[in-house]
Design a protein around this nucleic acid. Structure first.
Length: 404
DNA sequence: AGGTATTCACATGAAACTATTCTCTGAGTTAGG
DNA sequence: TAACTCAGAGAATAGTTTCATGTGAATACCTGT
């Protein structure tokens, strides 16, 4: 056993296709950012006055995931800091991703983590929020300086806390005497600005920059560049790259997705002991990403939702051999009820189950269309919209999680 | 035959309820002066 | 005495139920030919 294992280890060590896998990870910051020159230029020109010690406009960046928003801001941040140091200006730029679990839940935690980043400390719980505010202000205002606050995924804040928090952040300047603060908001929800307090809107969106999705050609460029660093010579050929770009371009031009795809394809090829990545690996990788996404979603659902899903899976299997392959909300609810009784769980109302079904529809797990069957009422026609092989896997997961 | 009314089986909305989490206050505890 | 800790009251929140209202077309029911 020991020997076999060491064989595996050794083959991984010697046969690796990768030169540096990190390059394909989301956290990696490339030295040059392709196809975002314009955006970076605009960001830089908006933030540039900070080098003269002037307050800059608030800035709002939006665009779909994987379009280089975070990357671009962080790049400008580094460059700005470098320059600021050179000419000796007191400039502080803080980046905070509001989506991180430990951060995002409450106003308190956001402030706390901001304070922590600024070098202060605060107990994890127990203090009144106002006091945390004061401490925050005190910390910022302790000396004359300019602060630029980058809030990644601001939409999360609003979703979880309401926009009043943003409002007070934006108005912070009036409470500061020595220093000044500007805020950069990043969001991948394009409609975000439309449904928030107009006061916040006008003030956060003083300047707005849209990050359009990459097209397939641009993705190719990015991939090529990274491939060079990530893989050894002759591991990836042109066809693979262009296919990879095409796949990702279909997913609203998500560069992160493209890189993941390539990395996973590489890992798969490596595991097979191949010397180069071919198109099949890419397909497998694509499928794997898709599958992982779905399975993850299924696994993290609360138990009642899982039960509803399980009912749907059961019905799908049952209807497989019958003439009419469709079934309706009522059918799902019945099966669900039976399952609940069997498991001695409390039964949710039909109203709720209806909402849960609507949720699954939104996730894309199922396809539910409202139809009218005339005299026989109105209901949803439900279909699982998942490849067959994954359905089995889901059934398995649900069965173990529900201990059926 | 052609038109109207009914009716089903849920969808969809709003409000109320509930259990859990979060915030905040003051009492109690600790430690340093 | 100031700083810290912690329990419990009160507020916020998410998940759910209750109540109310809406909906599209197959079907039942007319109506006049």
């Amino acid at each position: 056993m020991v020997i076999e294992l060491s064989n595996i280890f050794n083959s991984v060590l010697t046969n690796s296709l990768f030169r540096n896998k990190n390059v394909l990870q989301a956290s990696y910051t490339p030295s040059s950012i392709l196809h975002r020159e314009k955006q970076i230029e605009i960001i830089a020109s908006i933030l540039a006055p900070s080098l003269r010690g002037e307050k800059t406009s608030n800035l709002f960046l939006y665009g779909k995931t994987g379009t280089g928003k975070t990357l671009s801001v962080l790049y400008v941040k580094e460059e700005l800091l470098k320059k600021a140091k050179e000419i000796n200006v007191n400039l502080l730029i803080e980046y905070l991703n509001c989506k991180l679990k430990k951060v995002s839940d409450t106003e308190y935690r956001i402030l706390a983590s901001l304070i922590e980043q600024l070098g202060g400390s605060i107990p994890a719980t127990g203090l009144p929020t106002q006091q945390v505010y004061n401490k925050f202000i005190e910390l910022i205002d302790s000396k004359k300086q300019l602060i630029i606050l980058i809030l990644d995924e601001v939409d999360q804040i609003v979703k979880k806390i309401s926009d009043s928090f943003l409002y007070s952040l934006l108005r912070l300047n009036s409470e500061l005497s020595k220093s000044q603060i500007s805020i950069i908001g990043i969001s991948n929800d394009v409609t975000f600005l439309d449904n928030i307090d107009p006061r916040v809107r006008s003030s956060l969106g003083e300047e707005e920059i849209l990050f359009p999705p990459y097209n397939a050609l641009q993705l190719q460029d990015i991939l090529k560049e990274r491939c060079h660093l990530a893989f050894k010579e002759n591991v990836v050929d042109e066809a693979v790259i262009s296919k990879c770009a095409a796949l990702a371009a279909r997913e609203h031009g998500d560069a992160r997705r493209a890189l993941d795809l390539l990395r996973i394809a590489g890992e798969l090829a490596e595991r097979e002991g191949k010397k180069l990545i071919n198109l099949e690996h890419l397909d497998m990788a694509n499928e794997k990403i898709e599958r992982d996404k779905i399975l993850d979603l299924v696994e993290t659902q609360p138990i009642q939702c899982q039960l509803v899903l399980y009912s749907i899976v059961l019905l799908t299997k049952q209807k497989e051999n019958e003439k009419s392959k469709v079934f309706f909300t009522g059918d799902v609810y019945n099966t669900y009820q039976n399952l609940c009784k069997k498991l001695k769980l409390e039964v949710l109302t039909q109203r709720r189950v209806s909402d849960i079904i609507a949720d699954f529809d939104m996730f894309g797990l199922i396809n539910a269309v409202v139809i009218s069957k005339g005299r026989h009422g109105r209901t949803r026609e439900i279909k699982l919209s998942i490849p067959k092989n994954i359905i089995d896997k889901i059934e398995e997961i649900l069965r173990t999680q529900l201990s059926l």
